[in-house]
Design a protein around this nucleic acid. Structure first.
Lengths: 232, 232
DNA sequence: CGGACTTTTGAAGTAATTCAAGGGGAGTGG
DNA sequence: CCACTCCCCTTGAATTACTTCAAAAGTCCG
């Protein structure tokens, strides 16, 4: 028998890297599998946090919604990354909604299972600490950007972060590897879709980006870096 | 010998709650003590993250500074709370600067010590996960506020959060229990000290707050909640 | 080819910043 | 105890970056 291809994948995830092959097999067997299609909701803000998922394939989006319906995108979740961190950390409810932006395949564990795994395998707990520390740090950076930078710089930073985490080399430059509307960029940058549209149009005129419907390509990343870092 | 009063304190901190009394004693003995006076820096942004502190007494402030010198206040750190989380989570450098806002007494551990503690005592690792999850969640909420709310609501939220975490009942209402300038409030709310000043003046006229030099008292907290939650 | 999204662009409006100046409080040192 | 000085705070006026409002043009899909 059976070296399931998921085992390699699991061994390289942020949560399970460094776990022994034997333990990985047990972990894998205790997982539930779930397929979601683009647009499908994995869990909703306020749902009880009783499961945690790892993306095996595809991409999810975590967002928070305000009482009056405005959205903020917290992050995109790609292969090997965790959705539903509240399940790790004593949170009772999911703080945000997670939905698929592409057809995706997930592995899931119950709260009881994941708690037991952390207790039994210190490396898993350490990985969880490292992961949450990294996310906390990323949020600090975004908070600082949102507090101190003007819109154009924020949009530049947003695009550069997306390219970093989900960029794909293409003919014209680095392409963001999943569908992304102006509204999405606005919800990541703390502005409106109008301002994003105007800004991208400006950049398109100078050849910095090339974009279309739900698609953005960074043609001159270093020009974007210059905008993101500029003193003003 | 010796039931050191710090032991009780340690057993109630976010990081060491639930640890056995024996283990607590060992943990306590491996700590270094440090006194800081108001204004003193504990560590600076960019310093190697080789130590973690717990506040035994007093209060610290964690902030991030931009290349051009603007500051953002990440959080205030009160008794029982952790400063220097990067030491837990594989961060190489402290992502922000931590300084004392009141004279404070700290207990510190090296990175090696804290890593060993997490490996040896699963409950410590679980506490670390819970703590970082809570902080990550708090940042998500702040990011959402900063993205979607107008200044007045943000300042109201900021004050309510401060009151929640460091409020002290006084004759006039709930007083924020440490010195707090308009500039500080601005750096927490993502605005300027001028706007904070104007907003507080307005609230003072309607009796919602009472404030002076480095001091704020919430006289009508529910009025502030109304402002923070209002539809507009 | 119809219909639903998504995107663009102009024009008007405004919330908040920036610029500027002055007014207090608290501590210090004479 | 008073005066000096350093912060901190306040308030007005001008400016502006961005949003909001409005309309139309693309683009994709069934």
């Amino acid at each position: 028998m059976d070296h399931h291809p998921d085992l390699d994948m699991l061994g390289r995830t942020e949560l399970f890297q460094g776990v022994s092959a034997d333990a990985l097999r047990v972990i894998h067997e205790s997982a539930t599998r779930r397929q979601v299609v683009a647009g499908e909701v994995v869990f909703r803000q306020g749902d009880p946090a009783d499961a945690l998922y790892i993306v095996a394939f595809g991409r999810l989006r975590a967002s928070q919604t305000t009482a009056d319906g405005q959205q903020v995108i917290i992050r995109y979740i790609g292969p090997g990354e965790v959705a539903g961190y509240a399940t790790l950390s004593r949170g009772e409810a999911h703080p945000g909604t997670v939905a698929a932006v592409d057809d995706s395949r997930l592995l899931g564990w119950t709260r009881a299972a994941i708690t037991q795994l952390m207790e039994r395998h210190p490396v898993v707990a350490m990985n969880a600490v490292a992961m949450l520390g990294a996310r906390y740090h990323e949020m600090q950076v975004r908070l600082r950007e949102l507090s101190t930078e003007k819109v154009e710089r924020r949009i530049a930073h947003t695009l550069l972060r997306l390219a970093e985490r989900a960029g794909r080399r293409s003919k014209l430059g680095i392409e963001i590897a999943f569908p992304l509307t102006r509204q999405d960029l606005a919800e990541m940058s703390g502005t409106t879709l109008h301002t994003v549209s105007r800004t991208l149009s400006g950049w398109e005129n100078t050849g910095i980006v090339d974009c279309g419907r739900r698609r953005v390509v960074l043609c001159k990343p270093q020009a974007l870096v210059a905008i993101a870092e500029e003193a003003a």
